[in-house]
């Protein structure tokens, strides 16, 4: 499913991650917990190859980071659902088109697109807002759109980078419930968070990272 073997990513500033080795099994929830600057985001970025490991390798499904060319990266990313702290929605289009975009990318036909998007919107409880633009939604709603976008392609694994970081506690709990519901249907989740208490209150394995290394 997802395996990191002795991964090292270094930045010119000297920060980065090293000797990162762990595995996420099918259907599993894994929390990557650590303080700000510990390297959580870097670990996730190395998985979707926003940052290339300088040492070690990462296996995502049939992809091995050692053999993934620049042209292959989009195809690798289609196997992953990614949720960001700042949502990263496409502000120039409505909720429906934000989600349908990832289906257009893989060339899904119009009718199927409609069915899948409506399904994903129902999963995150936003069916009634499909024609709204991102800026018309609350933070929690925007994050739910991002989650719908991440799951609509039925990814191997959902990567979430501080998905509740910008949200108030109630909304954060809401988002966590949505994620857990998705996991119940079989999607693995790797979630980075600085909030140890939050991670502990859900059913999942916790991996701790500090100063770029697992502890």
């Amino acid at each position: 499913m997802l395996e990191l073997h002795n991964v090292k990513v270094s930045y010119p500033t000297g920060d980065g991650i090293q000797q990162i080795t762990f595995k996420v099994n099918p259907g599993e929830v894994v929390f990557l917990v650590g303080p700000s600057g510990a390297g959580k985001s870097t670990v996730l970025k190395s998985i979707f190859l926003e940052e290339r490991p300088s040492e070690g390798h990462i296996i995502v499904g049939e992809y091995n980071s050692l053999f993934v060319s620049k042209q292959d990266i989009p195809y690798l990313r289609r196997k992953l659902g990614i949720v960001f702290q700042d949502f990263k929605l496409l502000n120039d289009r409505d909720v429906f088109r934000n989600i349908s975009f990832v289906l257009e990318v893989v060339g899904v036909r119009g009718k199927v697109i409609k069915r899948k998007v409506l399904r994903a919107l129902a999963d995150v409880g936003l069916s009634h807002k499909s024609r709204k633009y991102p800026e018309e939604l609350s933070g929690g709603e925007q994050q739910r759109v991002a989650i719908a976008r991440a799951i609509v392609n039925e990814p191997y694994i959902l990567l979430a980078d501080e998905p509740t970081g910008n949200l108030d506690p109630d909304t954060a709990a809401e988002i966590m419930n949505v994620l857990m519901r998705i996991n119940m249907r079989g999607t693995s989740i790797l979630m980075a968070t600085h909030n140890f208490a939050l991670a502990k209150s859900y059913d999942g394995r916790i991996i701790r990272i500090e100063n770029g290394q697992l502890i």
Binding site: P74, N91, D92, F101
Partner: peptide, 18 residues
């Protein structure tokens, strides 16, 4: 003006040609 949108598109798996 749309560079952020382009960056996001790349993150969710769009090819350059697309």
């Amino acid at each position: 003006a749309r560079r952020k949108i382009i960056a996001t598109m790349k993150l969710v798996g769009a090819t350059d040609a697309f």
